[in-house]
Design a protein around this nucleic acid. Structure first.
Lengths: 195, 195
DNA sequence: GAGCTTCGACCGACCAGTTGGTAGACCTTG
DNA sequence: CAAGGTCTACCAACTGGTCGGTCGAAGCTC
């Protein structure tokens, strides 16, 4: 392969950012974890802002790829949304990536460099766009209901899932807390009444 | 009065924490903003963790007082929940305190000192407890519906509101984004069908 | 009341350690 | 040799925190 160092740096940075956010990790942390010089990191990512933006960019790229695969593989709208929630249930259960970087960094926006903020905004746009599309499709197929429009339904689902991550983290990264909040939000998008 | 310096320090710290979180503000920031020596801050709050914990403690105290007043003044369950959402609409619109400190710090939990984490947990407990009580009362009075139980309904409302704050911050502290997500969550707690 | 002590509030100067970032040498590998 | 990658060594600025000390108000004793 060409050079996996920059990829390994991104991995470490992503891990650190997921647990600590932007302002609470340092080049020294990555350097220690990887056994690589700080200068090497600067060689690949000149500034910390560049590094964080690159992490976000790769994260978004991977998400986009997953979503496209999901849309192709699964046609049932309900199953699509369940895959979204289920993905995070897995992440929290396994313990790696117990939080969405985009959501985490969003709360820090006033303390973030511009390039990073742009990526965060982009992530929210990505997410709400595909969630909106999935819901709209579900409504068209008569499998989902969105009284206030698919756009609002998407934003609401996204918000509830993000809030559920927060609640889970407060409870010590407890996946059952996440599910207890996120699953009903899914149910509610199908007929409100009963199963 | 006795000494308002420590109160002014708490004010400044709270403002900084609301916009930057725990790890992105420093004693020097407060010192500069207040024109007071760094040593003075340490005199009132020995460590940064003490300071942050004190900010949270005061925040919770104020909340508790407000909630008690609200419960006494307003008996309609729907109006109570509307007051909660309306409070944050105002905060975001006015621009001061455009985010709940508890929720903001929750995302940073892995990078927070223990005393601070304890306060964050406490805040979540406070909030979900009174929200749960308000919803339970509403169900008893036949004004609200909570199919999965009032506990879950409270956690879900809380999560959605927190997620709505996040979305609003991403949109540049836009109160309409917040309302578009939070208001429907309120509606849904009343009969799901129609008005 | 004068003189003394005690105390909390406050401050400038300082501390060791860390921050993000740089300069230049060295080693590969083509 | 040229170029990319990595290293050690370094930098100024800043981090949370400590030190010794000043100030003034309050309390005490004569």
């Amino acid at each position: 392969m060409v050079s996996d160092t920059s990829e390994r740096i991104l991995d470490a940075a992503e891990r650190l950012m997921v647990s600590r956010g932007y302002n609470a990790f340092s080049y020294a942390d990555i350097s220690a974890e990887l056994g690589v010089g700080k200068a090497t990191i600067h060689h690949h990512f000149p500034t910390k802002a560049d590094l964080a933006a690159a992490v976000l960019a790769r994260y978004r790229r991977n998400n986009r790829r997953s979503v496209e695969g999901l849309f192709a593989a699964v046609s049932d709208p309900v199953a699509r949304l369940e895959a979204y929630v289920g993905y995070w249930e897995d992440c929290i259960t396994k313990g790696d990536t117990p939080f969405c970087i985009g959501a985490l960094l969003a709360s820090e926006i006033p303390a973030l460099p511009d390039i990073v903020v742009a990526q965060v905004r982009g992530h929210f746009a990505d997410l709400s766009s595909w969630l909106g599309a999935a819901i709209e499709d579900g409504v068209a197929k008569g499998r989902l209901k969105a009284a206030k429009g698919s756009r609002t339904a998407a934003e609401t689902l996204m918000a509830t899932v993000h809030g559920a991550m927060l609640a889970a983290r407060v409870a010590g990264s407890d996946p059952t807390v996440f599910s207890a909040i996120a699953r009903p939000a899914l149910d509610q998008l199908q007929g409100a009444g009963k199963a």
